[in-house]
Design a protein around this nucleic acid. Structure first.
Lengths: 220, 220
DNA sequence: AAATAAAATTAGATTAGTCTAAAATTAGAA
DNA sequence: TTCTAATTTTAGACTAATCTAATTTTATTT
């Protein structure tokens, strides 16, 4: 039905769409997939012919309901495999992305169903990203960006926006993994760096660069 | 390094090689992969350039040490995933082949290593096929073809040669699954059909067509 | 040993995905 | 509002894998 390459384009377009309301630009897609605008244009025509995106020359592209369903099903598989890799095979959260990137294209729906059941129907992947259900519904998660916080308070780390091994390893070292509870002690007015304190009283500083990529929930 | 298609050709050539000593013929490969001889010829040149096979025009092909290593590593992955699918996700033995066919091409060696460890280092897959180790060693298994037996005796079913869902479902219905203990009561001189009896005294008849595809070991 | 049948190879196309370089279009600036 | 710069698209070519049809080679049979 859809090739692996088409699936990767749809995933990229879906992710870029959710970052802003406007149409997704050819160059954005090219950037995100490390390919050329020429290749993207070709693929957009193909996806448009299959009614997976609405595409108008020079005007960028919007994903259709049908395309979104495909994208969400791939994202569901990706995140379920990430849970499998960390929870069952004990990989670290910074090691699973590339493997999940391959596993997500294995096509059996029954396999995904059984995997989901075996894992106990997880709602979030190891990076805190919500796992869409079979119908493409994404669980609401009340996550906010740490960088958007303007006042002190106590929070739990629930996810990340940057999934690169480098960033994940940095967070690991600083003790900023999902589930960690911390309080914002002070926010610097000049560079928006934050002074935060953990439950064990240890504290550290976080730059805006970092807080921009950390997702949190308020702590009960 | 190797593409999925190249891996599938190497697997086919490896399997065909083990059926006879001679070079593998272009048409055998085409038949086994449901493709044309023309396509096979093209691919043989490519594999030969990569030193994965020894190929001489019109003379058929032999797999090299290097090609065999690749084939065995794919076969290892395939069989480990089959164990995962049956033992962990509870699929039936006649359902796992196509999924394993896709999973075997996921490239991470570390993933295979962890999977192997998680499954408890199994030596055989659900169809009784031996799982090659990391170095490409295939465990000796003392298996024989049921159709080769010439005298009465007691045996255990240890595997099959035909992996098609139709055949596996037939065996399931007849109670001829791996692990089943039975005795050969009589072999018909005319059509080589066998009268066999199970431990619970029930008995059945097996045609040569069937016994040709059942692997057995002698029962302790 | 020549004729013929079977098998294998080559020639030439096709499809999916990609690229570079050139042309077209849009949007921002003077 | 015209010009310029940035973006996007087209044109043309390449690689991997495939096909059909034609040709070549091998093997068999008379």
């Amino acid at each position: 039905m859809t090739t692996t390459t088409e699936e990767n384009y749809l995933k990229a377009i879906y992710h870029l769409s959710s970052r802003h309301q406007k149409s997704v630009l050819t160059s954005e897609i090219a950037g995100s997939l490390s390919t050329t605008s020429a290749s993207v244009t070709d693929m957009l025509k193909k996806l448009s012919d299959k009614n997976l995106v609405e595409y108008e020359r020079y005007k960028g592209v919007r994903i259709t309901r049908k395309g979104e369903k495909v994208a969400l099903s791939i994202i569901r598989r990706h995140r379920l495999w990430e849970v499998f890799l960390t929870d069952v095979l004990k990989f670290k959260w910074d090691e699973v992305h590339d493997m999940a990137e391959e596993l997500e294209h294995v096509s059996s729906d029954e396999l995904v169903k059984r995997l989901d059941s075996y894992l106990g129907y997880p709602k979030f992947d190891p990076h805190g990203d919500p796992i869409p259900d079979t119908n493409g519904k994404v669980p609401a998660n009340g996550q906010q960006l740490l960088s958007e916080m303007t006042s002190t308070g106590t929070y739990v780390i629930s996810g990340v926006n940057d999934h690169s091994p480098a960033f994940l390893q940095f967070l690991e070292k600083k003790g900023l993994v999902p589930g960690t509870v911390f309080s914002i002690m002070e926010i610097d007015g000049f560079d928006h760096s934050m002074h935060i304190e953990f439950q064990n009283r240890k504290s550290t500083y976080i730059s805006k660069e970092v807080s921009r990529n950390i997702l949190i929930k308020s702590h009960a």
